[in-house]
């Protein structure tokens, strides 16, 4: 309504993380990736080597993060846990993206009853707690990392489908899409070659943010024992195994992998938000 700006000058400001926060988060993510790739060289000990003479050790020069109830070096286990944890989240996201983008694009393209049907299906999935859904999937199939990833992926797909549908609808309303159509571009080619590539910048930023969420959900699943099985040192599983010590007042074995999960999730969020801003400006 006319001009109602307050303050001496109207200044448009957006709340944004300071640059150093972004670089710190990028560095932490880099560290996680390096750990996942070079675990065998980086870890000071074998992650599953037990040492019954050194149970529940406090952090020391020999064991930076201490040891757990079986005397295993927690630092080594965290480093080795990076690979299954990150790979699990990547696989989950890749699967969810494939399904979600397909559904979202088809819904936006076909509209009408196809759209309505897909919207209802995704709504039902939305209303259903993701974890409960995965537990059902695991009850029907076998427990194990693959089932966990596929189950969680199916729980994530509706979110991606909804998001894809909304940005695809907006994109398809642009006149350049009509221009393609008039040139004689068929519907499938239009979706795959003309519209989808224009969605990627927006989609990628969103997916990076979702990655953190995926990592956390998988860790939760592993904590419940539905995914990775011992002796894997997947982070969620480590928290679960370290649980026993908490009652005795020894929090390290459960807290450290939990903190690592939290740090990675926050870092991906910061990086993801910045990335989607950057890509959006470029588009």
């Amino acid at each position: 309504m006319t001009i109602e700006a307050h303050g001496p000058v109207a200044v448009a400001t957006t709340r944004k993380a300071a640059p150093w926060v972004f670089y710190l988060c990028l560095g932490l993510l880099g560290l996680a990736v390096v750990a996942a790739v070079l675990a065998d060289w980086l870890a000071p000990y074998d992650p599953s080597a037990t040492d019954f003479s050194a149970l529940y050790q406090q952090p020391s020069a020999a064991h930076w993060f201490g040891t757990d109830q079986l005397g295993r070096d927690i630092l080594s286990r965290v480093i080795h846990g990076a690979r299954p944890s990150l790979l699990g989240a990547i696989a989950l996201l890749a699967f969810a993206t494939a399904v979600g983008v397909l559904i979202g694009t088809v819904a936006a393209w076909k509209r009408g009853w196809v759209d309505t049907l897909l919207a209802r299906v995704t709504d039902v999935m939305f209303a259903f707690p993701g974890l409960l859904f995965v537990v059902l999937v695991i009850a029907v199939f076998d427990r194990g990392p693959a089932t966990a990833v596929i189950g969680m992926g199916l729980a994530f797909a509706p979110v991606i489908a909804k998001f894809t549908r909304s940005i695809a609808l907006e994109e398809m309303a642009r006149p350049y899409v009509d221009a393609y159509r008039l040139q004689g571009v068929g519907s499938v080619e239009l979706c795959v070659r003309c519209v989808l590539p224009n969605l990627f910048p927006t989609l990628i930023g969103y997916l990076v943010v979702l990655f953190g969420e995926g990592l956390m959900s998988l860790a939760a699943l592993n904590f419940l024992g539905f995914g990775a099985q011992p002796p894997s040192s997947e982070w969620g599983l480590m928290v679960q195994e370290g649980r026993g010590g908490v009652i005795q007042g020894i929090v390290g074995p459960a807290l450290i992998p939990g903190l690592v999960i939290a740090v990675v999730v926050v870092a991906t969020n910061v990086v993801g938000v910045r990335l989607s801003d950057k890509l959006a400006v470029k588009a």
Binding site: T2, I3, E4, A5, H6, P8
Partner: peptide, 20 residues
């Protein structure tokens, strides 16, 4: 400046939908 913006002067723009 605030006082002027509130009472003395008013501004209208091209697209009424953008201000409502």
């Amino acid at each position: 400046v605030r006082q002027v913006r509130r009472t003395t002067a008013a501004m209208i723009f091209q697209d009424p939908r953008s201000v409502l």
